[in-house]
Computed example of a mutant assay.
Amino acid sequence: MRDTGEVDTELGDFLRTRRARLQPEEVGLASYGARRVPGLRREELAQLAGVSVTYYTRLEQGQSQNASDDVLDAIARALRLNDDETAHLRNLARPAKRKRRQTSRPETARPSTRQLILAMDGVAVVAMDRRSDVLAWNTLGHQLLGSHYDVNSPYSVGTRPNLTRMLFLDSHTRELYARWDDEAKRSIASLRLVAGRHPDDRHLAELIGELSMKSTEFAALWSRHPVLNCTFGVKYFHHPVVGQIELAFEVVQMPDDSAHRILMYSAEPGTPSEAALRLLGASTQQTASEKAPQDS
């Protein structure tokens, strides 16, 4: 049940989920009376943050977009937010001045980026945009994540894979991840950060809407408003060709304003996973068709 007069906003949803996970006794407050909803009440959080209940309520309902850094930091401390959650709070509380939506050209990876990715050996590499649309991949990247797609599919908007859509709607991809639940949570937490940074991205909103309609698991996880900048870690695969494989991953942001990212998977030297990755690379010979076509 929501508070009376509740207004649906991304900021409000985020703050409510974070209030719900804290109990008064955890933050040194006495709890009085029955609670209709779990967690801290608005007045309790306002007290902890040192702001008025009226001000906090307006902020949570999206009626104030001029909150200072000091106020947002105080709320973040009261809610015990981590660094990623605090950054997300600022993005939602003070959205960038909205620009008039214009028809944008399809995203493409630079030819030099494609060339670099194809030249990388022993590492599975994928270039993607902020929505996790695949813009390019090397042989290992294709074989690891999307061998059931045509190798050239990233180079056409109509056939381009999307890693998040694949994760929730593609049965082959679902079977690929040995710890699918962990991967799903990580994917949504990262997508939440991106959505907070780009609230006017129509294509991103359409992707979120599509997944919310077609996947009850996505909708349930999305409603919890997880937030995490997932730039490194370990993933566990059950690959149909080489079996169990454990790979470290790193995500590198391109040093421009494109918001393109490079996702790289590698195996620890001398491990069975390294042998499996080598076998996967050797299972498919490179051909001329693996080279990206020139932009028209």
Rank of each mutant, 00 (worst) to 15 (best):
L207Y: 00
A189V: 02
R186S: 14
M213R: 15
N162F: 14
D181Q: 12
L191E: 05
P199V: 09
Y177P: 07
R165V: 15
E206P: 01
L228D: 13
T164H: 04
A178V: 06
A178T: 03
D200R: 03
D201K: 01
M213S: 11
I208W: 02
W180T: 12
G209C: 00
L207S: 12
L176H: 05
Y177V: 05
H225D: 11
H198E: 14
G196Y: 06
S215E: 06
L191R: 03
L176T: 07
L221H: 04
A219Q: 08
A195H: 01
G196C: 01
A184R: 04
A189R: 02
L221V: 14
E183F: 06
I188S: 00
A205L: 07
E175K: 08
E175L: 12
N162V: 15
L176V: 03
H198G: 00
E217S: 07
D181V: 09
A178H: 13
A205S: 13
H203C: 03
P226S: 05
V227K: 01
L176R: 06
R224Y: 03
D200T: 12
S190Y: 10
M166Y: 14
M213W: 10
L191P: 03
D201G: 11
L191I: 09
S190E: 11
S215P: 04
L169M: 12
S215W: 04
D170R: 13
P226N: 08
A189W: 03
L228I: 11
E175Y: 08
E210Q: 08
I208Q: 04
N162Y: 13
T216F: 06
R202F: 08
E175I: 00
T216Q: 05
K214L: 12
L221K: 14
F218R: 01
T216K: 10
I188F: 04
R179E: 14
D170L: 11
F218V: 10
L176M: 10
R202E: 09
L204I: 07
A220H: 14
A189P: 11
E206F: 02
E183I: 02
S190N: 08
L207D: 08
